[in-house]
């Protein structure tokens, strides 16, 4: 799949933003006043910025409101509904925390649940696609949720919880790669089933339908950079999980050093998740490539 920068940015940032909102809704940390304002500004900046980035790849962004209508069948629509609901509920909760110095606990719980649901619906947009075996796995939503919860904990300053969640997310990441590498082969789809000619012999693409490229090849058959996969996986693991864990576990004296370490941990984590997300798209092979003799 073509790794569109807007979508990579969206899924990374909004995942973090909604993760942070979930913690704030649960009262971790139980901030009020100005401190709360800063926390909510960061969370909304990430979540809303991500949502806006995702509209850039639409052909008709001005009609985006229509995407709220088909929640009965469409995970993309459900994502839109959940995201707006989470932002509205958490907005109310934030007003209480920032201006009234109160925490409306029930509202916070609902907001946290909606925030997590938003991340889940995002992951289901990809997981539901049988056409992309590397995404069509139960570990895909686990990966999105574990990234969001560990990144959220990091941003929410949950120093004791965050390293363990990061460790868990790193393990999920490894499991995702391991399973993903076998997904296409075990999906059973081959040029033989794609053409229905497989039982007569070995099928080979002889001539493509056109001399130039097309939408399908540009969007679904992305083979650039596959040779750097192992390196990028290493980078994603080190930046996304290992470095942030070290930063949090390193004993530091002054609070200044502590804050610096936290900042390094957050930035490294974001960069690592982006690398992982780039791989998520670039490595995903759509079965339509088989008609072109490619994967």
């Amino acid at each position: 799949m073509h790794p569109a920068p807007s979508v990579i940015l969206f899924t990374t940032l909004s995942g973090l933003g909604f993760g942070l909102l979930a913690y704030l809704g649960l009262g971790f940390p139980p901030v009020t006043g100005w401190v709360a304002f800063v926390f909510y500004a960061i969370a909304y900046g990430l979540a809303v910025g991500g949502l806006l980035a995702s509209t850039f790849h639409l052909g008709h962004p001005e009609r985006a409101w229509r995407a709220f209508t088909q929640w009965k069948t469409s995970w993309l629509s459900r994502e839109g509904v959940c995201a707006v609901a989470a932002l509205l509920v958490m907005g109310l909760y934030a007003i209480g925390a920032v201006f009234l110095e109160t925490h409306w606990t029930l509202l916070g719980l609902i907001g946290a649940a909606l925030s997590i649901a938003t991340v889940f619906t995002t992951s289901m947009i990809y997981t539901q696609l049988k056409t992309i075996p590397r995404w069509n796995m139960s570990v895909t939503p686990v990966m999105f949720l574990s990234f969001s919860l560990s990144g959220g904990a990091l941003l929410a300053g949950q120093e004791s919880l965050a390293p363990w969640l990061l460790l868990a997310a790193g393990v999920v990441q490894l499991a995702y790669w391991h399973k993903g590498d076998q997904a296409f082969a075990s999906s059973g789809t081959t040029m033989g089933t794609a053409t229905g000619l497989g039982d007569r012999g070995a099928v080979r693409a002889f001539e493509p339908p056109h001399t130039g490229s097309n939408y399908l090849l540009r969007e679904f058959v992305y083979v650039v950079g596959r040779k750097h996969i192992q390196k990028l996986r290493g980078i994603a693991l080190i930046l996304g999980f290992i470095l942030p864990i070290l930063c949090l576990w390193l004993p530091t004296e002054s609070s200044m050093a502590k804050h610096l370490m936290a900042a390094v941990a957050v930035l490294a984590h974001i960069a690592g998740i982006m690398a992982s997300r780039w791989l998520f798209f670039a490595q995903a092979e759509h079965v339509v490539g088989l008609y072109y003799g490619k994967r």
Binding site: H57, L58, G59, H60, Q128, L129, F220, V287
Partner: peptide, 12 residues
């Protein structure tokens, strides 16, 4: 149609 392209992603 908003041109999100998801339907094309889902078509084998």
């Amino acid at each position: 149609c908003i041109g999100c392209g998801l339907c094309a992603w889902s078509c084998p």
